[in-house]
Amino acid sequence: MLYFEKYEANGNDFIIVNEIVDKAVIPKICDRHFGVGSDGFIIVRNENNTFYMDYYNADGSRASLCGNGLRCVGKYLQKNKLIDSNTFTVKTEVGDKVGFINPDGSITINLGKPIIKYLNEEVRIENRIFLVALVELGVWHGVIYLGNLDEELMYKYAPLLSKHPQYSSHINVNFCEIISKDHIKIVTYERGVGFTNACGTGACCSYIVGKTLYNLNNQVKIIFKGGEAFIEEKADGIYLTGKANFICRGYYEREEEQNA
């Protein structure tokens, strides 16, 4: 049986295991009706107290980075007494990411510097044109600033934008609304998952676009469906801060074990 622990950061939830698994298991255990249920699946490998994170979306597709997933990994390392300080480093496909466990229990991750490929490129769907910024931070994000977050519009067009033929591969889509120079709302549609309660890399990419186009402050509060987080831009990267919480632990019986 597969031992797992489940965590969440702003309602973005993850199953964390400490062993390599058959990739066919991932969409099954992440299924919210027939499995445990989660947005993502994380393998944490501990090699002589060096920690590696392998991240998968709920459909089993691989992703190079997950900001909220890293916050949950920090909580996992702390809860399981795998670290003895408030600073930790996790190796990802896109390099080492440093995290900090703050006195209030929140976790800060330096996610690095997003790379803007372009700003406000026109993307046409049916008779509507969206101005999309394309940004990379381990994964590709499309960022769209709207006057207000129109739920009907987002739910109709997000899946179509994610798979639009202008992009060489599917992208995450972030809809943003500016409340003030230090306060924005974000709704994210993630490839391989769908709409999620929050997205850490999406928040960082949305911030850097807002900073470039609309002169956002260096410190910004982010409002997700799943609560609030905070972003601060420093010389060495974008820092994401927010709570991460343990939900439960258990054992998942693989299909071959069920049939034994």
Rank of each mutant, 00 (worst) to 15 (best):
E257C: 03
I15H: 06
N102I: 00
Y52C: 05
L77D: 09
N18K: 15
V173E: 01
G37M: 01
K211F: 05
I178S: 01
F195E: 07
K234E: 11
I109F: 03
K221S: 14
S168D: 15
A244P: 01
G40F: 10
A63T: 11
I26F: 12
C176D: 03
Y145P: 10
L213V: 02
V143N: 10
L70M: 11
C72L: 07
K28A: 03
V94F: 05
H183R: 10
K221F: 06
D54L: 12
C72I: 10
L82R: 11
A229W: 08
Y7H: 04
T87H: 13
I15D: 12
C176N: 09
N102S: 03
N218R: 09
E122K: 14
F88L: 03
G95W: 11
I116T: 11
A158E: 15
L131H: 15
F51T: 12
V90P: 10
E126F: 04
A229Q: 09
E253Q: 08
G142H: 00
K79N: 14
S85N: 07
A203N: 01
Y252M: 00
E151K: 12
D13Y: 07
S38W: 09
S85R: 04
I43R: 04
N120D: 15
Q219V: 14
A203D: 02
L2T: 14
V220N: 11
R254F: 05
N259E: 07
G60C: 04
C72V: 05
D59K: 14
G242F: 06
T188R: 02
Y251H: 05
Y118L: 12
M1G: 07
A260G: 07
G226M: 04
